[in-house]
Design a protein around this nucleic acid. Structure first.
Lengths: 193, 193
DNA sequence: TGCCGCCTTCCTACTAGCAGGTAGACAAAA
DNA sequence: TTTTGTCTACCTGCTAGTAGGAAGGCGGCA
């Protein structure tokens, strides 16, 4: 419970939760201002323009995600566990409603009207995630843990789509349990055992 | 090529394409006004408030979708064909960019900040679609066309998530072909033959 | 047939409030 | 003393929404 977070980090934190709730056009500087008790102008001091704020935010998110996934690869025993930890992370986020949606999945929906500097970063996150999933699946196949119908790249795309679609369904139907009900069987099917 | 569409239909058409592009907060009465060459006030004559406009729009969409799916059930020979026609519909929409996203999937992302009258209708569409998929899968099992790992309800949720997730990936990565690359194998796997 | 009043649709002109963003003053830290 | 962070006060343009009027269609009625 450190309250040592810098102002700009606090701004990004609030902005992130607001984007998760309503997307790029669903929040304003005034919303952030209200949430952390600082004037609008002070937010502009840290992030002159909204597009820039969100670009930095997505950068941070992508970096955090990449670091998290990387450490998962190093720490988790097997590729099967790595996959399991990954979806458990999201299950927890969704079930306690702390962050019930991926920032980049949210922004991807608005892709067509996003500033370029944001859109390109969202795309990058999707590529990173697909690459991570591909390499985990690949490793799992080599260790005889997974048996895939398709090439690892395609199977990774299918899995990523399942995860994002499951988030959407859970939100649309107001049923957090739906996430794991959809994604669970999807990864169970990959296992050989 | 009938230009006999009523003004309120034209308003809904434009609003729908704007929502598909940018969500609930991503369009304004002025945008519609510009697109169909009518004053803002005239739009308010047909739809006094934005929440009402979108509620009517989602109602129309849900009705059209329900009718389309119903006629698919009646016309398409087998449950396997019904599923194939369903995803072919979306593949076409996405590939020619005519409507590269489901309105309700788009709005589902913004669920948390949608007016109640809209949110409840979006939820209804998700339930309808899940029910349709469930019944098609069920029929397919009874005719020995499909073999499912899970109960039809769960498998339907998994399939729906795949479809929405695939739309999102196709959009995020700017690759229309990704939709069918993800959804194709997903339904192929259900088939017994 | 022509006139009447009503209803629908669209318009111009307007409002209050919020959006993102700026200018410049002030205090404290470096 | 310069830099950093915050403030008050402000600007412009856009937001949803309103008031009220003009044009036309339509049914009734003499």
């Amino acid at each position: 419970m450190k309250s040592t977070a810098s102002t700009s980090d606090k701004i990004l934190d609030i902005a992130q939760s607001l984007i998760v709730a309503g997307g790029y056009n669903g929040f304003s500087y005034a919303d952030i201002s209200d949430a952390i008790g600082i004037r609008k102008a002070s937010i502009h001091h840290h992030f002159p323009a909204k597009a820039e704020l969100v670009a930095v935010l997505v950068d941070r998110y992508t970096r955090q995600a990449a670091a998290g996934l990387q450490s998962l690869r190093e720490q988790a025993a097997s590729p099967a566990d790595q996959l399991q930890f990954y979806i458990d992370y999201w299950r927890t986020c969704i079930e306690n409603a702390s962050q019930p949606f991926c920032v980049c999945a949210m922004l991807a929906g608005e892709m067509q009207m996003l500033p370029d500097e944001v859109a390109s970063r969202v795309r990058a996150h999707f590529r990173n995630l697909a690459a991570w999933l591909t390499s985990v699946l690949q490793a799992g196949v080599e260790q005889g843990l997974f048996r895939l119908d398709k090439r690892p790249e395609e199977q990774a795309q299918m899995l990523m789509a399942s995860v994002h679609g499951a988030m959407l369904s859970a939100r649309a139907l107001g049923d957090p349990g739906l996430f794991i009900a959809v994604v669970g069987p999807e990864i169970a099917r990959l296992r050989t055992a």
